[in-house]
Nucleic acid binder design. Sequence first.
DNA 1: ATGTTAAATGCAAGCGCTTACATAGGCACT
DNA 2: AGTGCCTATGTAAGCGCTTGCATTTAACAT
Lengths: 340, 340
Amino acid sequence: MSKHRSAPTLDDVAKAAGVSTATVSRCLNNPQQVVEATRQRVLCAVDELGYTPNFAARVMAAKRSFTIGAIIPTMENAIFARGLQAFQEELHKRGYTLLVSSSAYRPEAEEEQIRTLVARGADGLLLIGHDREEQIYDYLERQKVPALVAWSFNPTNRTPSVGFDNRQAMNTLAQQVIALGHRHLATISGISKGNDRARLRITGIKDAMAENGLAPDDLFVVETTYEIENGAEAFRDLMSYAPAPTAVLCGNDVLAVGAIRQAQEMGLRVPDDVSITGFDDIELARIVSPALTTVHVPHREMGQKAALELIHMIETSASGRSVELSTRLINRESLQAATV
Amino acid sequence: MSKHRSAPTLDDVAKAAGVSTATVSRCLNNPQQVVEATRQRVLCAVDELGYTPNFAARVMAAKRSFTIGAIIPTMENAIFARGLQAFQEELHKRGYTLLVSSSAYRPEAEEEQIRTLVARGADGLLLIGHDREEQIYDYLERQKVPALVAWSFNPTNRTPSVGFDNRQAMNTLAQQVIALGHRHLATISGISKGNDRARLRITGIKDAMAENGLAPDDLFVVETTYEIENGAEAFRDLMSYAPAPTAVLCGNDVLAVGAIRQAQEMGLRVPDDVSITGFDDIELARIVSPALTTVHVPHREMGQKAALELIHMIETSASGRSVELSTRLINRESLQAATV
DNA sequence: ATGTTAAATGCAAGCGCTTACATAGGCACT
DNA sequence: AGTGCCTATGTAAGCGCTTGCATTTAACAT
């Protein structure tokens, strides 16, 4: 028990147990390959020395890290939290570890993070949405790192996806808004460049308008980043136009909450004076008052299925199948028939 | 340009540039050690081949990973989000990468994560609060991995901390509550076992009671995990006692929001019928209605200072100095004078 | 020219692990 | 007892990088 001893290695364990390093390694990774008696001896030595395998060495030798990387656009709000949580729980069950990083909605940052994660030996990657440069997919292919897209569904894409039809989901909501008599619609969207979810949601609204004899180009669109304050600001801009919209469909719940607060600040009652809807159905949607009418996204299911599919791709080198999930309209208090 | 070539290595770059691997390595890590002309040649080869260094190999050889690990009790709510964001931004500026994992408030999980992070070669660790088994600190010491505690401040502890005085902060709030005439106090706290922040906050309230001639033992305490629903449930329990508390001091904003919603559900007006306070001053505190009177914690400052201090410990092998930050009372709408 | 010195580069030894292959017992048969 | 085969274990070759030390090269003074 010398004081200055530093971290024990496989070798130390082997010596202590009187076996070769190979046997120790097998004990730890494929216990069934080593006979009971030896295994006991090794395991004893392991915790007597307080041995923890060196991860870098293991990755290097095995060329497997049992680590999966996920790059999400933001950690600042809870949009991705629940889905990612489910993703990681499922990974954990299967013996994988999740490494998360956030790109802050910046494509270059995302590319850098992808490279970083690959360099760190990630066995697979979870990406959000399909929109990114081809070269990134080439790179991933060359490095032989399987990738899976979530929060979006597009089976024709070269990368498989586990997600939902953003266009369709928003379309259904917009149909309902229009059915309630709203004729002047507006949307507060995320930045659509590089964000297929945002873009498709806008398209969903325009389609609904066209399908109901409204001119799609009349849709007021404000794009901004997903923060409550920005939702508020965008709402203020929107209401300065004439005729003011009677319904504001927000790209997500966070923006919607900002819009609601701003409306209240401006002395407008929601939904009496103006209807506001969200998207995602995160916790916030129920907490805010009035509670948000929104589109429920099965985040947990998506996270879990994505984990399963990605692991499958990794372990069988299969190319991956896309899976589509369905969303659901949640009617709460923030949407009401147009009064005009 | 063979199709089946896999990831290029240092060696490939060296060959392509007609130098040794040592030179390539130096180009990448200590550019000033290599003459301009050579450097150009090497850098060209690097991006011609699309080379990305293998992280595991680098860690192994250099025994440095420029990676810092943080284990937080939860990612589910935003309590740690802002501080961690600032922590990571500062790390990034200094060339470090952050790896985050969540222990779900389970000590064994935390220990496992600490080992995992160390095995992955983390150069340093950020931990939340001081409460954990001695053996963990021993382990860290043996592995020579510096650790820093945040969200708590206790300069006498063996591990340095960057945080605030939880007891004092809550004490100040409780003093004000009492000064407003409240005599029947209750608190909805996080689970205090293994959570010094929660415990100290309770102590802060009791001290304030004692200092004002109230019996500390009269404080109703309900402990629960930090989720909105649990805050709601706890509030219901609390109000079933007689005499019902006129002020409920919550261990954090999340619990307070749950309490407020439950109060509203029970037909109680906040703060007219019952005052409710939070702690942390996260975004939620301003969004909920009535807006929360709470204790503002300088999360960003804490994250940033922690990063600086931890890097300092890593790079100089210094033992680290604790730094204390101050909190501030934020008076919003949820606390009001007792009406009895 | 030659020696002296410093700067640039190369050489090669690991870092701690996994795993293909080699080896050695053990057992069941003949 | 000998043969074959199966299983448990050992041997050693890397995995891709960094870095101390040795060597070469360049630069300058004499």
